[in-house]
């Protein structure tokens, strides 16, 4: 991947998307091959060095412990050794970006799913890493909140953040992209632990590849607001 890329990992459950992402973040060691981050093997970096380049939002978050939003934000500043004022400022900026400023004193456990997800995005932002990896960031959210999550993420990507994203909703992704974005977004289809294909979002044969990937019929309709994807049972 190059700086500024957006790579979207797609594929059925169990295809290996999350395992690939875990290896890319250095959380698990790959059996074969290696992951290079700016030229260095990811396992050779100190944890804080790695976190300076790469922020990760895993699929699951533990919320068994009562934790205030501002304290949860502080944990994402672990790699910094900044003063209280610097930390405060960075946290305020990130919460403002996510539209969550007035939630800073709240307990994370009292937030709705959508609010909590915005806090997790703000945690990624406050870590100030140029590369983000997100595992199904819009899962379990209502349709409007899903779109808000994608809008926040894509704004960030357009501003220069490199991203790897796992999703089960390529239709939502395509609907969130503006036409000029399309050639710069790459979709990777994964099947049975292997990367089956990588295509730009405006590839003419994208529909047939997606249909094949999910074993459904896929249509891409060209509309004035951009391409729209439909998946349905084969007739």
């Amino acid at each position: 991947m190059d700086e500024g890329d957006l790579l979207v990992l797609l594929g059925p459950n169990g295809a290996g998307k999350s395992s690939l992402m875990s290896a890319l973040t250095g959380w698990i060691r790959p059996d074969e091959g290696q992951v290079l981050l700016s030229g260095s093997p990811i396992g050779s970096l100190k944890a804080t060095e790695r976190a300076a380049s790469l922020a990760w939002l895993p699929q699951h978050t533990d919320t068994s412990e009562s934790l205030r939003v501002d304290e949860a934000m502080r944990t994402a500043r672990f790699r910094f050794s900044d003063t209280a004022a610097q930390e405060e400022q960075a946290i305020t900026e990130a919460l403002r970006w996510a539209g969550m400023l007035e939630f800073r004193q709240r307990d994370l456990r009292t937030l709705s799913g959508g609010e909590a997800q915005r806090i997790h995005l703000a945690r990624l932002a406050v870590q100030q890493a140029p590369l983000w990896m997100l595992d199904e960031p819009a899962n379990h959210l209502d349709p409007r909140t899903q779109r808000e999550v994608y809008r926040l993420l894509l704004d960030r990507w357009r501003a220069g953040t490199t991203m790897v994203l796992i999703t089960h909703d390529p239709a939502l992704l395509l609907a969130s992209l503006a036409p000029p974005d399309l050639p710069r977004v790459h979709l990777a289809g994964m099947k049975e632990g292997r990367m089956a294909w990588i295509l730009p979002a405006d590839a003419p044969d994208l529909a047939s590849h997606l249909g094949d990937l999910y074993q459904l019929q896929a249509h891409i309709l060209q509309t004035p607001r951009g391409p729209r994807l439909q998946l349905e049972w084969p007739s």
Binding site: W27, A47, A52, P58, D62, T75, A76, R77, F78
Partner: peptide
Amino acid sequence: SRALDALLLGEAQAHGVGVD
């Protein structure tokens, strides 16, 4: 204690922010 706080959201989350 700071590293431990990062662990509260899960080990993977802690790894993500730079804790081993």
